[in-house]
Simulated scan of single mutants.
Amino acid sequence: MEELKLLLVDDEPDFLSVIARRLARRNVSVSVASSGLEALDKLEAEPVKVVVLDVKMPGIDGIETLRRIKEKMPDVEVIMLTGHADLDVAISGMALGAYDYLLKPADIDELMFKVHDAASVHNSHRS
């Protein structure tokens, strides 16, 4: 089975390191970015199937990052991460092409399910 690669984008370093470690233990190859611009640069350098993207970040926020990802790489699936206060924003992200969204703190099993589901959708785009 092909290794699952994803990009995890969040401006909270502790969250990034904890989730990246937990995903790595589940045989997911994780790259991390702490801003929307860094995420866009990393995607250009090393494309992935799935991006897990925080909505609220300084600089360009998750919605603008999503918009730019979908413009350049429409087949990349994006799962939005949001707090309860930003739920409407995450739902509007779905209209821009986000695959799904999760409320923070994200349950790792639910995140894994959505990541695998998004990756299988990505694969079906390419066949």
Rank of each mutant, 00 (worst) to 15 (best):
E2P: 14
K5S: 15
L6W: 09
L8Y: 12
D11H: 02
P13T: 04
P13D: 02
F15P: 00
F15D: 02
I19F: 08
R21H: 07
R22A: 15
L23Y: 07
L23C: 05
L23S: 03
R25G: 12
R25I: 07
R26K: 15
R26M: 07
S29M: 11
S31L: 15
V32P: 01
V32L: 03
S34Y: 01
S34K: 10
E38W: 06
E38Y: 07
K42S: 12
P47Y: 05
V50H: 11
V52A: 14
L53W: 09
D54H: 01
D54G: 06
K56F: 00
M57C: 04
P58L: 05
R67A: 15
I69L: 10
K72A: 15
K72G: 10
M73T: 03
D75T: 14
V76C: 11
V78N: 03
T82E: 11
L87A: 13
D88N: 11
D88F: 08
G93V: 04
M94I: 15
G97W: 14
K104E: 10
K104L: 10
A106K: 09
D107V: 03
M112G: 03
F113Y: 13
H116G: 06
D117F: 05
A118D: 07
S120R: 11
V121Q: 11
V121R: 15
N123A: 14
H125N: 08
H125L: 01
H125S: 02
S127E: 05
